[in-house]
Nucleic acid binder design. Structure first.
Lengths: 326, 326
DNA sequence: CTGAAAGCGCTAACAT
DNA sequence: ATGTTAGCGCTTTCAG
């Protein structure tokens, strides 16, 4: 609390303007409540003069609405690209909401959501963390507006997912056209459901185009893990494609091949995932799979802006992924 | 608001436990208020049974404390930011607070802070954005606990800054020892005060060690801007050091030299800033200047945890920067 | 140790 | 169009 002075309340404003609290409230409410123009002006003037800012706690006690939206993640780096994170916060602010960031390290942290009253009472929650199951999500928040963005979805509920199979198939077709016959598949966390689905898509498309998976390894999406793994293996690079489920791992593949084979492996035989900045810079430059972040966020915002869903109405939206050839 | 049911209030809990609201309140308060053990147990039990979670708005209306901390940034564009914020959010949560992320695109957005009542009423604000001047910071928030982390500080007030001159001098000494006589200095935003200070440190140290600044360019910290700039210039690489005020620009310098001079420029003649992940990976690997993020955050948390500051007491803490030689 | 009652600051009925 | 009044759910005196 401010030590120097007490904060003006609506009552102070009303007094200064010479009206009742209700009139003052209506004048400042924004919604076009009936009020005399001159009084409205006097109230606005008085509020400005006192530097009045409404107490949100009193307001929310009545509205039951906070104007806050929770973003729930495992780590921030989960959000594969900063651009997404940055754009998302910006979009949330542009619809007049604020962003509450919740970081979950493990299942143990989930209970804290309920224990943290403000988080529990957000207007909506965006779930990026795969630690939260679609069934339990509704119990964690006071609001029904819980949007699953972690690839999981409950029958009843809201979600935006990425159709990854599409971009993956396009990548495999590209490999096929370039006569790649054999593949190394560097994957991320084995326990992740989305990762499992992703790997399945790779396997199906590769089977379809006659590409053999010779090595399938689970790393942890990171540069270091992939580099460590590759360093322990000798690859026969004839007709080989290296497919990675993150751009960071693809960077490791590029570095590994550069050192090991002095670029004998065509750089284009390495495929990343996420379409980050790094797939485009000079020292790396590999093809990758991604999606339109703007489109993804637009769908989220669309759900956020929908005032009312029919009781239990489900909305499962999806963004197509895409192959980015370099 | 949840559509299916009404939420239990303290009154419901009290009724179920067969006690008064006050007793129920005291039982759940956490602070050791006098109360009979059996009643306390009954209340706790009743609360659990109903799945009671206190309404934070009613509580805050009395406490004037939200348990929320605002992080105010321009944007989150930098990888160095990611690691920092991830750690910071985790630390904030570990002291039982929640994180409100506020993104400022320009000065115009500053007024929105006051207009957004919840942001205005946070328990503390961490100012990373350099759009906010130390003089105006106290007027934007209801709390006195506004910590400037943007390199600016008011005489009265709280701040944690990085002593960048230290790491910069170490870098220049390294260059001197490696017989570098001439320098290109790739800087960031010209309008930034911290950047101005940083450039000054480079100039002073270089003057001291007899290194000539032949080219001083303002880019925008990004890979693209630096690469574009370098591509338009021909460098005489004899005894040349390329000093960049961001790792991203140093990456561009590495790529530029690799293509232009086929690595004739020793890679060690390129100096980055921020000690990001990228200064350590195979394809780049350059020396850089950084600081301990943990130490920085520990100081912030220390300020956050200090209950009361003497009226108007100032606290200006500082973290030493360091040269990371690769 | 407990309960009744006041009140935090605001909004929304409801009578003027 | 305006003022009065009754809460929103909680904590905290203040008497018992």
């Amino acid at each position: 609390m401010k030590s120097n002075s007490s904060v003006p309340t609506l009552e102070d404003v009303a007094k200064l303007a010479g009206v009742s609290k209700s009139v003052a409230s209506r004048a400042l409410s924004g919604k076009n409540r009936p009020i005399a123009a001159d009084k409205k002006a006097r109230v606005t003037e008085a509020a400005a003069q006192l530097g009045y800012v409404a107490n949100p706690f009193a307001q929310s006690l009545i509205n039951q609405s906070t104007g806050m939206i929770a973003i729930v993640v495992n780590h921030i780096s989960d959000i594969s690209d900063l651009a997404l994170f940055d754009l998302l916060i910006q979009s949330i602010q542009s619809i007049g909401k604020q962003t509450l960031f919740v970081r979950l390290r493990s299942e143990k942290d989930i209970a804290d959501i309920k224990r943290s009253p403000f988080v529990h009472r957000v207007d909506a929650a965006l779930i990026f963390s795969d630690l939260i199951e679609p069934e339990e999500a509704p119990h964690l928040f006071y609001t029904d507006k819980v949007i699953m963005l972690n690839g999981k979805k409950a029958d009843a509920g809201l979600s935006v997912t990425i159709n990854e199979a599409l971009g993956i198939e396009q990548a495999i077709i590209n490999a096929y056209e370039r006569s790649i016959k054999r593949a190394v598949l560097l994957c991320g966390r084995k326990t992740s459901i989305t990762e499992k689905q992703r790997v399945l898509s790779y396997q199906q498309s590769m089977a379809k185009y006659g590409i053999d998976i010779e090595l399938l390894a689970y790393c942890d999406y990171s540069y270091e893990s992939a580099l460590a793994y590759l360093s322990n293996h000798t690859l026969d690079i004839q007709n080989l494609g290296i497919f990675c489920t993150s751009d960071a791992m693809a960077m490791a593949a590029v570095d590994y091949c550069r050192e090991q084979y002095r670029d004998v492996v065509e750089r284009q035989a390495i495929y990343g995932f996420d379409n980050t900045f790094f797939s485009q810079i000079r020292s790396y430059f590999f093809s990758t799979i991604g999606y339109s972040k703007q489109e993804f966020i637009d769908l989220i915002i669309q759900l956020l802006k929908t005032e009312k869903f029919e009781n239990g109405e489900a909305r499962h939206l999806s963004v197509d992924s895409e192959f980015y050839f370099r």
